[in-house]
Design a protein around this nucleic acid. Sequence first.
DNA 1: AACGTGGCCAACCGCTCCACC
DNA 2: AGGTGGAGCGGTTGGCCACGT
Length: 252
Amino acid sequence: MGRAPCCEKTSLKKGPWNHEEDQILISYINKNGHGNWRALPKQAGLLRCGKSCRLRWMNYLSPDIKRGNFTKEEEDNIINLHEILGNRWSAIAAKLPGRTDNEIKNIWHTHLKKRLKDYQPPQSFKRHSKKINQINNCVYAPNSPEISSSETSVMTTNSSSIATFDTTIDDQIVIKQEEMDSSEYFAKIDESFWTDELSTENNFNFVTTMDGEEFQSLDIFNSTTIMEDDIDMDFLFNFFIKTEEFSELPEL
DNA sequence: AACGTGGCCAACCGCTCCACC
DNA sequence: AGGTGGAGCGGTTGGCCACGT
């Protein structure tokens, strides 16, 4: 069974915070910081448990929090990150500055889940399957030279390419740190590109070769979305953990 | 105007993780 | 190595509000 409650709840206030309590908490933390959440309410003179104070600060009062509606870009990022990370709301929040895990969780349950459900992928998808389990090597090459025409890149609907697969070497995947205008590299996808084989989980991903002529789909996308304009190692690490098929991780 | 219903979101609860002893 | 306690996480709840009938 779980541990005992963190405080004697009978004497402590629960429910919505009022303005006065907010002010007490803000001024206490501004003055003293929050070393020990458990001890904080007593020291600050609040009839709340430490957990409640921490939650109020982290989710509402902290100056780092960005208020207001989520932008389309933020929503897209949440969708993509959720596809990679699942319900790890705090990990998703860490990628969205100013947004809290609670906020993201709420918007996921109220808006984004519905949005994904409503989305129908195009009907036909021509795929030349290249199984991810054929890829045995992984190389992280952030400063590698320009992408050659033999390589296949991966993108999402709203971001630049970050991953490049060398199609001339069956068992190698090269990850490059690229910042580029994706429209420069990727041909437009028309209806003939898609087939019925595409599962709904794949609907934010597609792959083209660099010359834009021959499209390829990789089964990697059954569980993975690659995204973000600015790649970072933490993100890459999560990506590789998620795609357990890789036998090697990039050097960190 | 009154009532019912559903959406939204702040807050709570139970649990795990992890540092420390 | 095992116990303890604080911090943090994810699921869930409850109350407010907008909208429809």
